[in-house]
């Protein structure tokens, strides 16, 4: 399964990236507003190959060059916080992460940094998530855990209702683009853990979110600052129960959800998945509703232009 690219794949991907570059250069002439209206708000990309559906989803949003300009520094935030293998679904599918990193590279990113503040023993988390192993051949790409306090910097949260300041990973503050690549999973405290909850992997002190503050309000406070430009949610399989760490019920959905709107992406993922044996409306997850209410994105699916594609 894990082999180098075949000639056909290579031709295909180079054609696609060629086309992407071409469209990208046209876009330079187009005003940005009109440009974003050309694309759907949310792409749900179905298919059996995680790599293909990830690529298709990003292409559907206008290609990676819409988000990553040549020479820019990119931080990708996957889930790799648990020392469990990809099948357990508490970490992001390494194929999805690799494809996002590859697209960033093809869009001309000068540095691609894949970061997470791991919950369990860092080396074990990275090794068992297999993300470093998958991404090692993508140029300019580094996979790191972030534990040492010196790697964080305190920033103010001007629009925070509860959180007034927090310590965020330095490199995220310096980066040009932040991309969230979470896995779709349930969460014992926040209902689901998707792109917004996942941002807690880029801050130093997570514990006080739980103990001092209301978790949902804190998450929304946090994403007023840590707002990803692009969200690709791995729904190749979701951890439907027992999240975030598992063990729990793993349901294959064979899809990824991509959007430039983190709230919309999370909302769509909630609607697509089955959580604890039930179906839910996006607004039943408090932090999604709060984020939408505070104007950070759109959680009302009826107001979103959602496009389903299959590859």
């Amino acid at each position: 399964m894990i082999k180098g690219q075949s000639r056909r794949q290579f031709l295909k991907s180079s054609l696609i990236s060629g086309a992407a570059v071409a469209t990208g250069s046209i876009n330079l002439l187009t005003p940005n507003k009109a440009f974003s209206a050309e694309y759907p708000d949310v792409i749900v990309s179905y298919g059996s190959s995680a790599t293909d559906i990830t690529r298709a989803a990003v292409e559907g949003l206008g290609g990676m060059q819409r988000f990553v300009k040549p020479g820019s520094k990119v931080v990708i935030k996957p889930n790799m916080s648990f020392s469990s293998p990809p099948e357990a679904a508490s970490n992001t599918n390494p194929e999805v992460v690799r494809e996002v990193a590859r697209l960033c590279h093809q869009a001309g990113a000068s540095r691609i940094s894949i970061l997470d503040n791991t919950l369990r023993t860092p080396e074990d988390c990275l090794r068992m998530s297999r993300i470093p192993e998958y991404c090692k051949d993508i140029p300019n790409t580094n996979v790191n855990y972030v534990k040492a306090q010196r790697l964080f910097k305190e920033v103010k949260v001007p629009n925070g209702k509860q959180i007034k300041s927090m310590e965020v990973v330095n490199e995220v503050l310096e980066a040009d683009v932040l991309i969230a690549v979470p896995v779709g999973k349930s969460h014992g405290s926040s209902g689901v853990s998707l792109s917004m909850k996942g941002m807690m992997g880029l801050i130093y002190d997570r514990i006080s979110f739980h103990s001092r503050f209301d978790l949902h309000e804190s998450i929304v406070d946090m994403v007023t600052i840590l707002k990803p430009a692009l969200v690709v949610i791995d729904g190749t399989r979701i951890l439907s129960t027992g999240g975030p760490g598992g063990p729990g019920e793993v349901i294959p959905l064979n899809l990824v959800v991509a959007s430039a709107d983190m709230v919309a992406a999370d909302a769509e993922m909630v609607a697509l998945g089955t959580w604890y044996g039930k179906k839910f409306e996006p607004n039943q997850v408090k932090h999604i509703k709060l984020a939408s209410d505070r104007g950070l994105g759109q959680s009302d699916l009826s107001k979103l232009n959602i496009k389903n594609i299959r590859s």
Partner: peptide, 13 residues
């Protein structure tokens, strides 16, 4: 990787 999650036959309810 193809085998991801396919060990559960659970279908969305």
């Amino acid at each position: 990787l193809k085998g991801f999650g396919t060990n559960t036959e659970e279908t969305p309810k």
